[in-house]
Structures are given as C-alpha cells and as structure tokens.
Design a protein around this nucleic acid. Structure first.
Lengths: 203, 203
DNA sequence: CATTGAATAGCACGATCGTTCGTTCTAGAC
DNA sequence: GTCTAGAACGAACGATCGTGCTATTCAATG
C-alpha cells in the first residue's frame, strides 16, 4: 500500500466526478464551479489541486486513458490472437462505452469533435491516445494474419478504420438518436467485418 | 426576385459567419461577442436579429439543413436508382464535408456529440435532421433493391447505419487525426459496402 | 425631399468563467 | 501534546457570457 495523503484521495474523487461530467458535457464544458458544487468543495479548494483548468483537463484525459488500458486493452491481450482477441477488443469497447463512470458514453468520442479544431496540449494528448488505440487494433490484425488466422492480404489500418467507424456510429446512434437498436446494428456490422477478415483470399 | 430588405441581407451574412464558426467550435461555442467582432457589428445590433441565442442556433441549424438538402439530397435524387444514386449520395456527402463554408467539416457532426446529452429544442432539431438523412439513405436502398439493382434481402436501416459510420469515421480521421489517408480509407470502406450490397444473395 | 419604421449602436445588468490571494483549519511527524 | 506543512475556504479580480434598455442612424416609401 503506497502512502496516500489526504490530498491524493480527494484529487482522485475530483477526477471521478470530472470524468462523469466530461463524458456528458465535454472537456470545455467542465467548469470549475460546477465541479466544486458537485463535490461539495469550494472553487478555490478544488482549483488548488490542479493549478489550471488545462492541467485539470489533461489529468482527466490521462485518467480516462489509464482506465481504458486497464479495462479494454489489457484484458483483450489475454485472449488468443486472431478473431478471439479482436472480438474481445470489440466487446470490451462496448462495455467501456456503457460504463457507469461515464454516463455520457465514451469520453474520448465526446472530446474528439470538440477538440478537432482547437489546437493545444489537450488536443495533442487526445490525438496521441487515439493513435495509440488505432495502433493497438492494427497490431492485433497484423498478428492475426501473420498467424494465419485472418486473411493474409488484410490491410490492418483499413481494418482499424472500419472497427473505429462502427464504434463511432454506435456512440452516435445510442447517445444522440437514443436508438434502441444501436447495439444490434453495431454488432451486426462488426460480425460482417470480422467475417470478411476471415474469408479466404478473393480471386 | 423577392423584395429583400437590408435586414434580410445582413441576417444572411451573419448566418454565413455563424455556419463557418459553428463548424469549428460547435453550437455552444457560438458566442454573440465573437460573432459580432467577426461581422464588424455591435453585439446588440447582431443580437436584435435573433432575439435569443437559442433562436440563433436553431436558425443556423436550419440554414445548414437547407444547404445540405440543396447540395446533397436533391442532386443525388436525379441519379438513377440503385448503385448510382447511392454512390452520388456518398460522393456529394464528401463534397459537403469539405465545403468552403464549413471549414471545420460537417457541422451536423460537430453538433452531434456536444448536444447528445443536452436536452432542448436545439437537440430535437438536430435529431430530426439526422433522422431525415438516415431515412433518405434507407429509402434509396429500399428502392434500389425493389428495382432489383441491389440484393433483395438487404436491410435498409443497417445499410444506412454503415453508410453513416463511414462518414463519421471520415470526419474523425480527417479533422481530429488530420490523417491524409482519411478520404482513401473512407472510399475503400464505401466500395466494400456497396459491393456487398450488390452481391447476389448468400446461401 | 420629408417621413417613418427598420436597423444598428451604446451602455449597463447580472451571472459565470478561470484565477489569485490571504486566511483558517487539520492531518501527520516528532 | 506541539509544530508544521498541506488542504480547504472565502472573497474578490477582470473578462466574457447572454440579454435588456434607449438612443441614434439609415433605408425605403409617399
């Protein structure tokens, strides 16, 4: 057990609250005042933990990244290469998107479109984490086809693009349109994509 | 030529500016002050045209909707049913996403994730316009397969979901990741989707 | 050209934003 | 139990937000 001061504990609980709030209203929508009232703290007391709003935002993003790795990437890597691992990546992403701590859905997607035209460290950090995720997907594909479990002429980056596109659409259909069929649609699209990836080489 | 007062002209140019700004910073990021300085007007002078910020936002959305119909939906309906029309819908959407008046990419997608957890008339209007678009896509598919140009057992709504997912991913890859391959990836995914839709019924 | 209503500007409001400062409290080490 | 560093608070800052007023300027009509 590492020695954790009082401050570390409250900092953690502030990040908890921030994560939930940011998944709903985005990174820019994270206001210190709102956060203070939700945690029952004073604005200045809360602020002192981070020093600046940008620092808070960066730490929220980093916290989300750590959780994503722990909840999605790591467990999936325990599955055997090829289809099982890809399926786990997909299933775990869906779980992630529905997690209790992010009532607004995947926080990265909430952040993505609001940051795509706002240069700065926060945008850079988000881009980095997304690239990391895409690389994870592409690697899983590459290993799968190297092991002969997937089509040999599969383009890993193209596969990652299409994987990503299905999850993006799931986010939209479930969050914005509140479409009850969102998950079914996503799973169907995914099944088709995976089937294609296993099909033997076309002529 | 309808009689257009001076006010109508400036209102139009304000909407022009708003559209460009909103595509970059979103609907919530549309501030009256920023808009005033960009158009060279006073805050109050500009404000008088709309009466409230929400009204401004609604009118911006409606303006975008009208343009979308004129630039994407209508021209595509002039193409013959089946694959040509679907292809036109896709190509025209890409043009739309790269249009000069929306330097931040498709404004609907910029608005979607920021509004998905903010109930209100603006969200309602956006949802309505997106449903309209999805219905247009589904209808194009239905007509195509009824005419025997596409697989008969094609699910129109599933097709619309996958069409939409490709364009969503294009938005992300080009805007956030600034990936130069974004358009290539999107076109490849689209080609595969369309090919599947034309393939004869599977066993 | 004169008149009048529309269009725009100027100014101020309350609220909230992120941030700073000085103070108070309290937890942890001796 | 005392001392001290860290944690939290309260009040205030300048800036900006959306939104009212009132006054002024301008464009369209007779």
């Amino acid at each position: 057990m590492g020695t954790l001061r009082k401050g570390e504990v409250t900092r953690g609980s502030i990040l908890d609250t921030s994560l939930a709030l940011a998944s709903q209203v985005g990174m820019a929508g994270l206001s210190i005042g709102e956060l203070a009232s939700r945690t029952g703290m004073s604005k200045s007391g809360l602020f002192a933990h981070f020093g600046s709003k940008e620092s808070l935002q960066l730490q929220v993003l980093e916290e989300a990244r750590q959780r994503f790795i722990a909840l999605v990437a790591v467990p999936a890597l325990k599955k055997p290469r090829g289809a099982p691992r890809l399926q786990a990546l997909f299933d775990l992403w869906l779980d992630w998107s529905q997690a209790d701590f992010s009532p607004g859905g995947c926080i990265f997607m909430a952040a993505a479109s609001e940051l795509d035209d706002r240069p700065g460290p926060l945008r850079d950090a988000l881009v980095e984490s997304q690239r990391e995720w895409l690389a994870t997907l592409a690697t899983a594909v590459r290993q799968g086809s190297a092991a002969g479990k997937l089509r040999r002429n599969l383009d890993p980056d193209q596969f990652a693009y299409e994987f990503y596109s299905i999850t993006l659409a799931y986010h939209h259909f479930s969050r914005l349109l509140r479409d009850p069929a969102a998950e079914t649609r996503a799973r169907r699209a995914w099944r088709d994509l995976l089937t294609q990836a296993r099909r033997p080489e076309p002529a």
